[in-house]
Amino acid sequence: MELFTNQVLAGIATGAIYACMALAVVMIYQAIDHLNFAQGEMAMFSTFISWQLMQWGVPYWGAFILTLALSFAGGILIERLLFKPLAKAPVLTNVAGFIALFAIVNSVAGLIWDFTIKQYPTPFGSSPFLGSQLISTHQAGMIGVTILLLILLFIFFQYTRMGLAMRAAASLPESARLVGINTSWMIALGWGMATAIGSIAGMLIAPVVFLEPNMMGGVLIYGFAAAVLGGLTSPLGAVIGGFLVGVFENLAGTYIPGVGNELKLPIALALIITVLVVKPAGLFGRPIVKRV
């Protein structure tokens, strides 16, 4: 029983990582209606920028805010320079563009900062949280930030003009244009916000997994899985999806005899697919009705 509780707690702690990344995934999906395979690498690059700022003597929160601003601007810049020209190209060509961006960002980061792992500071400390050694104050802080982000996003999408316009632009671009929304800039804004949220995810994840150019590879797979499980249109679903994936994966690894440990990722993914087969829009996503 103790092992069970411990694995659930450890799963929640790891799940916070996935939840954070999943939020960024949902953000970009809201803006451009598909997944960005380079998102993890962009988050990694932002994290390196903040690390570099700290190396130059900028205090943590200063670096945090600066990185957020730089990432936001960087996201918009990437959209304007690289993906706006592809707006009329087929979807699959855009996906190829994401893969190209992935290769570029990963390679450039490796050249600038090397591939050796780097320690990354946490503002929350890493002592045991509320007497439990399984969740450190950093992980508790990470869960807190994730929930805060979730609330902010919810308010943004539900109650602000900008948020509503952005949703409209992504799901019904034609109609959105008719009511006077500048859909092109909504997409750029979505990129900026997604990159900024990604940078927060990166800066929170780095103290746990260590900073290096390949640090987001595994995280992004789980982030996608979590977002898809929760429903790509729902930030709340993405966060819950993240925690579910974290906990379930740990339990599968611990309790499924024989192959459980070696196959915990495939088992977790298989479960998600099963959920999708039953509920194709994810746990919290809106069902989509197609018109012929």
Binding site: Y29, H34, L35, I221, F224, A225, V228, L232, V259, E262, L263, L265, P266, L269, A270, I272, I273, T274, L276, V277, P280
Partner: peptide
């Protein structure tokens, strides 16, 4: 199972298959 999935969901399902394969081969 892929029948019921489309777009990004199918992408994830096939992606899952690709990640699982090397692990299955190592079993």
């Amino acid at each position: 199972p892929a029948l019921r999935l489309s777009g990004v969901y199918l992408a994830l399902a096939t992606f899952a298959l690709a990640t699982a394969m090397p692990q299955l081969l190592k079993l």
